[in-house]
């Protein structure tokens, strides 16, 4: 594990966190783009594993995914460095803005820049969903497509809790594994 990797982890989680507005799953396609597509440090499959594991643990998505990626790339040290990278931008920006928030809230310049950035984040999500779902549908396992569609519908239309969904899928996976007996 060289120093460059630690620096890469920190710099990436820091810049991604500084540009992620809104929280939750928004950070996942950004991290995927950086670590899977641009750097090649993770496989797409691992990124999805990490997303699933991060969902099932308590805490904030951005922090959880960063810790998991950091650990995968650089052990406990990597986890710590990534966590710091993800936590520092909101800490710094909120400390500055929190003091002078009256002038910030009514600032139309900030609002207009944000609007443009949000449109790009929406495009990024669309791009990620196209690629990821394409790989699931094109995969050998038909059940993958069924699970994906059902989970989407349950989360989007019925607002079912994400932890309930992800843990149910873990249970389905285990049941299916034991049902297949030993291969």
């Amino acid at each position: 594990m060289n120093k460059n990797r630690y620096f890469g982890l920190f710099a990436t989680t820091f810049s991604v966190s500084a540009l992620t507005f809104g929280g939750g799953y928004v950070i996942v396609p950004l991290l995927k783009k950086k670590f899977v597509d641009e750097k090649g440090w993770l496989e797409e499959k691992e990124m999805l594993d990490i997303t699933a594991i991060a969902t099932s643990a308590p805490g904030v998505m951005a922090i959880n995914t960063s810790i998991l990626i950091g650990y995968r790339v650089g052990g406990v040290g990597g986890a710590l460095v990534s966590m710091l990278g993800a936590a520092l931008p909101p800490l710094i920006i909120m400390s500055i803005v929190g003091g002078l928030y009256d002038s910030f809230i009514d600032n139309t310049y900030v609002a207009s820049a944000l609007k443009g950035m949000q449109a790009t984040v929406a495009a990024l999500l669309a791009d990620a969903v196209f690629s990821l779902s394409g790989n699931i549908v094109g995969g050998k396992d038909v059940m993958g497509t069924v699970i994906m569609v059902v989970v989407f519908a349950a989360a989007f239309f019925l607002n079912v809790n994400v932890v309930v969904l992800i843990l149910s899928c873990a249970a389905i996976g285990l049941v299916r594994s034991f049902g297949n007996k030993k291969k």
């Binding site: 699931i136 989360a155 989007f156 996976g173």
Partner: peptide, 11 residues
């Protein structure tokens, strides 16, 4: 099974 679920949540 959890991977396609993660894609569903991102979607």
């Amino acid at each position: 099974v959890m991977r396609p679920a993660a894609v569903g949540l991102i979607a």
